[in-house]
Design a protein around this nucleic acid. Structure first.
Lengths: 338, 338
DNA sequence: ACGTTTGCTGCCAACGTTTGCAATCGCTTC
DNA sequence: GAAGCGATTGCAAACGTTGGCAGCAAACGT
């Protein structure tokens, strides 16, 4: 491994000059910088992150803590965060906190506290009091994306408003019997329940505001997955109960499942049943799904930017940031006919 | 920040003993270990990855290089890799190499060569000769998952065989006019073309073996996305051309798009057209899609395990590993009727 | 001519671990 | 009782970089 000293020896200079030249500090003459850079290139030098991290106390990376990478929302946020990190020349330490209990504990302590990153961006996780305290003790800048956590800065959307707006769209179309498929019953815990709860509250609020009494039987507890929601609607249809005229799915993926189920049973969307989701998943256009669009990529961008700014010494943003959502009308919703 | 010396001072021992105790080395008495662990816990000690990395030359992390995180296949591999890393107490440095040119160059050099990880696992990337050479020079153990790269170990499936097997399934059902939707024309380059090409070759081979002359007009060049394939089939149907009796999509997501398009135009799957994909995407069951299942999670597990074994000092595996695929028959394929 | 500034460079002490080697201690063994 | 041994522990030298401080020219002002 060729180090800074090797370069110094090669060109007959001191290691500190080489170090400064490579970091493009102003105290080095332009001529020297070029000599150094040339030598570094020629010798194939690569800076040891460990060594420079040791002395500066900075890793030039940020830790991204996620409950999973295989859900659309998470992967989008990750891409957004990544785009900012690349620009700032930061690396990303990905910590998958999926699961519960000991395993989670271990992953948490190991990766976060081991100072793999200079800041922490957490996704849709409910931190226990203990975890929050440990996080605080590390004194790292922290931000959460997707789900507010008390005491921590947050970037995301207003779930309640989103749920209400989606429901309102259906109400505006004349629907009064609206089924809501909610999520959060996943077996793999650790992700926050506040998202599905918020959307559900929004749903109920919108109904009440329109003078409709929320009917608990019209709320299906489910998971944020297509399959779960598909079978839920299958069951509903096959039970022979009267169908609602509209369905508000807590996520687009759940809406897809509902649409497939309805189509499979010969019901037309939106002719027989209107369907609306939340997300604007990349597949939503293919389903002609009307949805309340959020931009998780942007949420990642904003979250990362706030952390990076703080690491650059800019004054810390202490407030949360609520990003807008907007209705994307495609073909899956229509005025009520029954 | 409390360090090893603080603990040593606290319990009246030397730093080296503390270091050894915390690493559970045999040269330390059990009693001492307990005292040290207790003190470390009490003081809230956390090992500096930079310092220990500096002296050992190991980061206890591996770099995972991906072209994107938001495709199903990639996210599954990531989860698989992660599961192994957690067990081995390794961290993950995620390097998103999405994009081309300078940006890619920078990301490549920065993260890989900066020695963020002790080994590199690369996903479905075509490395340039230059990149391969740089990789080689780092002397890090490297493995590629998803797409073979000459000179590097590989974990994945036999794409040609998979393509042939999928096609053969349709042939066995009596189909002779089989459309193939292929991928690889994504605008975001950098990911390998070998996957779609392999599948296509398999398709052509299977046709020839069955005495059917491959018809270039029956191959649609597309992208690995649902939307692209949906519009491709839309166009085909609306052009009024005779429809094939079966469609072999190079990925499940593309198959979904095809199914939606067919259904939307009143065509029954599999009544009018059979559809088969490759992947076994988590949504495939909801689409009742017959597909050739691969297990990207397992591919990640195997790839990670090979690297971890090597880092543990076990003799390096020099051979590639081809994992099996298997046909999952659901409802989207049926004997030909026309 | 002589201080003083300015611009650049070198020296050296950190940073927090790990690890080879030496030292210590309590025993056993001859 | 001396020597030897094994089990523990301590000492000190790395590891590769950074950054405060000092040094040293050349340029400047008087």
């Amino acid at each position: 491994m060729v180090g800074i000293e090797d370069i110094a020896r090669d060109i007959g200079m001191s290691a500190s000059t080489v170090s400064r030249a490579l970091r493009d500090l102003p105290a080095v003459s332009e001529k020297t910088k070029e000599i150094v850079r040339a030598a570094a290139d020629r010798l194939g030098y690569v800076r040891s992150a460990a060594a420079s991290g040791l002395v500066t106390g900075r890793t030039m990376a940020i830790s991204l803590v996620v409950p999973s990478v295989s859900l659309w929302f998470y992967s989008q946020v990750i891409e957004g965060v990544d785009s900012q990190l690349r620009e700032a020349d930061y690396d990303m330490a990905l910590v998958n906190l999926g699961g519960v209990g000991v395993e989670r504990q271990r992953a948490f302590r190991r990766s976060l506290l081991r100072h793999r990153g200079d800041a922490v961006l957490a996704l849709c996780l409910d931190f226990s009091d203990e975890e929050r305290e440990e996080l605080r003790q590390t004194r790292l800048p922290v931000i959460v994306v997707g789900t507010p956590v008390s005491g921590l800065r947050f970037v995301g959307i207003d779930e309640v408003a989103a749920g209400a707006q989606a429901t309102q769209h259906l109400i505006d179309l004349g629907h009064r019997d609206i089924l809501h498929i909610t999520g959060g019953a996943e077996e793999r815990l650790g992700l926050s329940l506040r998202v599905p709860q918020g959307r559900r509250w929004g749903y109920e609020q919108a109904l009440k505001a329109a003078g409709i009494t929320p009917n608990p039987a019209r709320v299906v507890e489910g998971r944020f997955s297509m399959e779960y929601s598909r079978t839920a609607i299958d069951t509903l249809i096959e039970s022979g109960e009267t169908m609602p005229t509209a369905i508000f799915a807590a996520s687009d993926e759940m809406a897809f499942g509902a649409i497939l189920s309805l189509n499979h049973h010969g019901l037309d969307v939106p002719g027989d049943v209107s369907v609306i989701g939340i997300d604007d998943h990349e597949m939503s256009s293919s389903f002609y799904l009307t949805t309340l669009a959020q931009r998780p990529f942007d949420q990642g961008v904003h979250g990362a930017q706030i952390l990076l700014d703080e690491l650059c010494g800019k004054p810390a943003v202490r407030t949360s940031r609520v990003l807008p959502v907007h209705l994307v009308t495609r073909g899956s919703t229509a005025p009520v006919t029954r």
